[in-house]
């Protein structure tokens, strides 16, 4: 394994609603012997709310520049942060004029394109690699999992690191840990509805319910995911969806880093598994 150190960009949800993902990411990389250096004084990537691409480029130039000054590739656990960091890196590398203009806003925004942005899932499977992970796995996950990818992992193609229609990186990890992937290809890349949660909750809830229902009828013990906004929608808001639609779902939703942490033998409490909104106790009983 070649990676020993990465710049870590936690993203805004890491401080509140996705604390569990943040904790488990840090624990997993510590166990794997990869040092994570938090991007000092990082700022928000603009998420989906910054519709002006120029704003996205300027906001993310700063984060990229901080990582670049430390000569470290930048890794994030959030799909939207990843998309914004990666498309900014691409735009600034390809457009010298834009790059110079952004540097002109403030010298701290000088990014020269020498480091790249990566998502946690990409780093785990493609950079650290399956062989290395396999050698460190000590527990078997005796569970059925619905691997849910959402957006920005396989699309758009400029920044994608997996297949747009049938992504497999999480499937591979789950198999490696002894888990079983339930048939889920119809739902894998459907948007969770998150971006409409605050303005059209009816549509957002409908989308999230479809994903959770499908996981349930496929016999999954849990849904695994790799993005804090998906986590917000499918886990943190699940009780609100149940109430609004007058249904029972009760589907545990966990981050892929939480599952990997269990397989690596890390204690559940250090993976934030007490913080997922839908109870994960039954799931933990199936880790042997």
């Amino acid at each position: 394994m070649s990676i020993t150190k990465l710049a870590y960009y936690p993203g805004c949800p890491s401080e509140a609603t996705a604390l569990d993902q943040h904790i488990s990411t840090e624990a997993v990389f510590e166990k794997l012997g990869v040092e994570l250096v938090e991007v000092e004084d990082w700022n928000c990537c603009g998420a989906a709310e910054a519709e002006n691409p120029m704003l996205v480029y300027a906001l993310n130039a700063r984060n990229l520049a901080i990582a670049e000054r430390a000569s470290l590739n930048i890794m994030t656990p959030c799909s939207i942060c990843y998309y914004n960091l990666a498309r900014t890196a691409k735009a600034l590398k390809e457009d010298e004029k834009l790059s110079a203009e952004i540097k002109g806003i403030d010298s701290s925004l000088e990014y020269n394109g020498t480091i790249t942005a990566k998502h946690v899932l990409d780093v785990l499977v493609n950079d650290i690699g399956m062989d290395e992970l396999k050698s460190k796995i000590v527990k078997k996950l005796n569970i059925k999992v619905a691997p849910y990818y959402g957006c920005y992992i396989g699309r758009p193609r400029e920044t994608a690191y997996d297949d747009p229609d049938d992504p497999v990186l999480m499937d591979k990890l789950i198999e490696l840990m002894g888990g079983e992937n339930v048939p889920f290809s119809q739902m894998k890349t459907l948007c969770c509805g998150g971006p409409l949660m605050m303005t059209r909750a009816d549509i957002a809830f409908d989308m999230a319910r479809t994903i959770l229902d499908t996981a349930k009828s496929a016999g999954a013990d849990c849904v695994a995911l790799a993005c804090p906004l998906c986590g917000m929608m499918l886990d943190a808001k699940q009780a609100d969806i149940e109430k609004a639609l007058n249904i029972k779902i009760e589907m545990p939703v966990v981050y892929i880093t939480q599952l990997l942490g269990l397989a690596l033998g890390i204690d559940a409490s250090k993976l934030g598994l007490d913080k997922n909104a839908v109870d994960t106790k039954e799931l933990l009983g199936k880790v042997v």
Binding site: A48, P53, C151, Y152, G154, R155, P156, R157, A160, P164, T189, C191, G193, P195, L196, T199, R200, I203
Partner: peptide, 21 residues
Amino acid sequence: WICLICQTCTARCPQDVGISD
């Protein structure tokens, strides 16, 4: 105002219109 910016259209467009953007 109900577009999810999920990029499905962008990924599938044969003409690279970049519909989401």
